[in-house]
């Protein structure tokens, strides 16, 4: 049976991993290579590296990290943050990443998704969105607007319409980041996840708001997400990955339990 995935997300700024709180990253959470290695040994299903500076210097730092991590960590690696052009995507995939995560650039130039999917395959093109709840009246269905530039700029795009366009253009997977929930640790935006899951066929990765194993359980069941991204609960060792997976397994969620048998990989 296909397992639900647990994906630690490392927000990288000037070579250090930092925690995001409502899009203003502030607190130092340690060395990203060390963290990545720890998560690998703990049985993370994938890793995401996010360049929060979204600058060319930031990109170079993240690429050095991915190169180093990909020499010894054999799970899928995704890189996001400030990817704007076809050449950016190619550089990142050549450098050892398995997937690229495209966000703002898809709004500016939606064709970048198609170009990426046609050249590298949909499986390595992840479309990420930052969504903020719109005010709605009593009894109305919730709605979300797409924001770009790290959640600072409204686009007027409706999230449900936009995700369908992203998938039509070739995105193989969607990361749904809730601006409302991001950094609050009050739980994922469940409605955002199950609303999008109902209109697209590709896997959904939930992001933003994780504060506990219970939150992950909720978004993987009620939220219908295929995977959950989490940052600070792992970085600050509030939970270990095996702990979260055990919690999920005990409640009937299929997960890949993993025991590293020690030593250098499997030489």
């Amino acid at each position: 049976m296909l397992a639900k995935r647990i994906i630690p997300c490392l927000d990288v700024k000037e070579g250090r991993n930092v925690r995001g709180v409502r899009f203003s990253a502030d607190k130092d959470a340690g060395d990203p290579v060390e963290l990545a290695t720890r998560y690998d040994r703990e049985g993370a299903d994938e890793l995401v590296f996010y360049d929060i500076t979204a600058s060319s210097d930031g990109r170079a730092i993240v690429m050095d990290l991915v190169r180093e991590v990909s020499e010894k960590v054999f799970i899928p690696l995704t890189v996001g943050g400030g990817i704007r052009t076809y050449d950016d995507m190619r550089e990142i995939l050549k450098g050892g990443a398995d997937k690229v995560s495209i966000n703002s650039a898809a709004v500016t130039d939606p064709d970048i998704i198609r170009q990426g999917a046609e050249s590298f395959g949909s499986q390595c093109i992840v479309a990420a969105i930052d969504a903020l709840r719109r005010p709605v009246g009593n009894g109305e269905d919730p709605a979300w607007e797409i924001y770009v530039n790290g959640g600072r700029k409204a686009t007027g795009l409706d999230a449900v319409d936009w995700v369908q366009e992203l998938v039509d253009r070739g995105a193989g997977e969607l990361v749904l980041n809730s601006i409302d929930a991001d950094g609050t640790k009050d739980g994922y935006d469940l409605a955002l996840n199950h609303t999008v899951a109902a209109v697209v066929d590709v896997p959904i990765v939930a992001s933003g708001g994780c504060g506990s194993a219970e939150d992950i359980y909720q978004v993987l069941t009620e939220g219908r997400a295929s995977a959950a991204l989490a940052a600070s609960i792992f970085h600050f060792e509030e939970y270990s990955i095996p702990q979260v997976k055990r919690y999920l397994k005990d409640r009937g969620v299929p997960v890949r339990e993993y025991e590293h048998d020690g030593g250098e990989g499997d030489r």
């Binding site: 296909l2 397992a3 499986q123 193989g172 066929d201 896997p203 295929s226």
Partner: peptide, 13 residues
């Protein structure tokens, strides 16, 4: 088949 999420992405047995 359309009953599943496509692509299949992730760890399976």
């Amino acid at each position: 088949p359309a009953t599943e999420r496509v692509p299949q992405i992730g760890w399976n047995q």
